[in-house]
Write a protein that binds this DNA or RNA. Sequence first.
DNA 1: GATGAATGAGGCTTCATTCAT
DNA 2: TATGAATGAAGCCTCATTCAT
Lengths: 212, 212, 212, 212
Amino acid sequence: MSEASERRTNKRSLIIEAAVEVFAERGFHQARVSDVARRAGVADGTIYLYFRNKEDLLLSIFEEKMDILLASLGEILEGVHDPIERIRRFTHFHFDQVRVNRLAAEVLQVELRLSNKFMKEYRPEKLWSYLGVFGQIVRDGQAQGLFRPNIDPFIAMWSFFGAMDELAMQWVLSKKGDRFSLDAAAVQVAETFIRGMLVDDPAVKTKNEEVS
Amino acid sequence: MSEASERRTNKRSLIIEAAVEVFAERGFHQARVSDVARRAGVADGTIYLYFRNKEDLLLSIFEEKMDILLASLGEILEGVHDPIERIRRFTHFHFDQVRVNRLAAEVLQVELRLSNKFMKEYRPEKLWSYLGVFGQIVRDGQAQGLFRPNIDPFIAMWSFFGAMDELAMQWVLSKKGDRFSLDAAAVQVAETFIRGMLVDDPAVKTKNEEVS
Amino acid sequence: MSEASERRTNKRSLIIEAAVEVFAERGFHQARVSDVARRAGVADGTIYLYFRNKEDLLLSIFEEKMDILLASLGEILEGVHDPIERIRRFTHFHFDQVRVNRLAAEVLQVELRLSNKFMKEYRPEKLWSYLGVFGQIVRDGQAQGLFRPNIDPFIAMWSFFGAMDELAMQWVLSKKGDRFSLDAAAVQVAETFIRGMLVDDPAVKTKNEEVS
Amino acid sequence: MSEASERRTNKRSLIIEAAVEVFAERGFHQARVSDVARRAGVADGTIYLYFRNKEDLLLSIFEEKMDILLASLGEILEGVHDPIERIRRFTHFHFDQVRVNRLAAEVLQVELRLSNKFMKEYRPEKLWSYLGVFGQIVRDGQAQGLFRPNIDPFIAMWSFFGAMDELAMQWVLSKKGDRFSLDAAAVQVAETFIRGMLVDDPAVKTKNEEVS
DNA sequence: GATGAATGAGGCTTCATTCAT
DNA sequence: TATGAATGAAGCCTCATTCAT
């Protein structure tokens, strides 16, 4: 990477990280662009060299974080072929990310939804890719006779995401995370969805790690 | 005074219904109070005789619709004691409401989240009551030995809600609802969560109505 | 006129007159909308109840003043049928207006031209009506055999306006109007254009009032 | 170094020509300095090596073009002593320039007026020199007994310029120049002003070339 | 209760200009 | 000379809310 493009990347990252912090603290609508600029240590106008407008900055946080998420998810699932195990890893990975990247999670969970553009116009293709991984696991599981064939992978995928997302939201909103642990949430979501999709033949449930 | 004419003169209801339409069309932040006033056929100032401010109007929609929802849910579950059956009825009821009251659903799904106050300060106690019904079903099921004791009802309740909510959101956002039917979603969510929470003993799965 | 509409008209006029003063003093681009508001004794936002934006305010000054100008020109020319006399009256009327309404003239002369919209997009139909009167005088004069038939009324009209306009501009820019008197300008422009358009036959020049 | 390659390396000329184009296309206020830089193929900052600021660039166009205009006008009038013929040549020369250098004309006509500094502070001395030629013609004509002595050369000069300028503006604004030809305008302006200023004695009108 | 004209705070964004390289 | 990334001042406009009628 050349020095020029590195500086460019650095400044962009600087602003993204500042925006994550400021948006998480004050909320997207309450946050002023100049707050983000001050936090990033740049002039107000500099932000507009890297982002079209304030909303683009929010969406860019999403894109940026989803890129990282997608890459990391790939690594986590690499070499794991059993659909059941893949679901467990996916779930734990997702909640781990929420914990590790709490501020970003807060922005994505809470603030991104404030954006009309995001909810109604923006096509979150990166999110679709992310969830598409789950959809494929379901289809693979069905092909292997693990999951019931009348499960609609599309419905499964969105209900799985909705469950995790809502729990993440509740965890983020309860600032202290004191209602429940993310680990407990991960275990319960994974086991519920796995069991919920399994065929009735109990023979397959051999690798169940859950203590029940 | 007939119910129809009462509604006619009931400015508050007029405004609520107008707000539901306008918020659904333009989004909460994009919608102007004067838009709501024009749609309701009242003056801007009149809105402030019934609601403290724009946000109060949004929250009032929520409260109003939740009151109806809570009452209706009570009727639906009345006389039904089997936890499994109660979950099935709850799920179908929820998605039915989304379909029947599509605009209100859109406002609740999409727009309520736009309100900072709602997400960070407002305590949606009506929503908690609504979901608390589910939490109680889980506890009842556990008491009856139907559901695994290590299921955390709190986590179960929010993941259940998140799953339904996200599916409703996807259904609403796909303006034509052509990706999947709400009925299919209702069946799948109910069966997944029921099976997902059941104890391992297969003896209990006698009343499974699902075609699998 | 009802009380309501009168108040509306009054506030609108108040703003127009304030804008004429402020634009004349500071120039259109230098003037702030809040300057106009303060001068008019209204809130900033009130201006936007009557005008779409700052530029619309400038164009509205033009429209408003041209309406008055057009009406007054009609009165001045009423009952005067001789084309030569009509040109003299037109010319004197125009320069009289510049003198009497100096601020408005300054805005129209100097500031209106700052508006790209005016110069390139806006169709100044009121100005065309105003000049059209001159064009008709030329055609009438030609029909009466007074003015040379190869005079193009369109060219005559715009060169006549250009001559008056530039002199008005020079008079306005020389803040003291000390280079020349508007009366002298009126006489000279009128006589130059009249003589410039007359047929060669000297017989017609009987009514020349100019002292030469 | 050939003239072509000199121009190639003469950044100043490159920038001037780029500015003429960009200002003509978008207008002075709408044009961005970076637009001019891009068109000229230089960096934004380079412009400030040759011009103090954006306005200086505009005024430099004016100075540059007026220098050429003044020199050319001198050549055109060289050896022509008859005031009437000099006016004719002046007029045709002016409109020829408008036609030949349409973009520059547009900038001078329309955009120069956009500069507050030009209208209110800047002394367009080159323009005064240009018009001073006309003023001198008038005085010469008066000295020769051709033009009426009560013609004020200052008023004559500005009304002459205003007439030409407004016609040029109308021609430029009617993008196709289809309302009238510049030749017709030149003839009519010249003849109108000549006849308009002549003494009453018809004996002098011997060289009238106009077809009337 | 009802009206709707008036209010006025507040912030996103542009773009001419600078200056370290 | 040349670059172009960075600067940061400055102001138009929106729209929720008020209050005199």
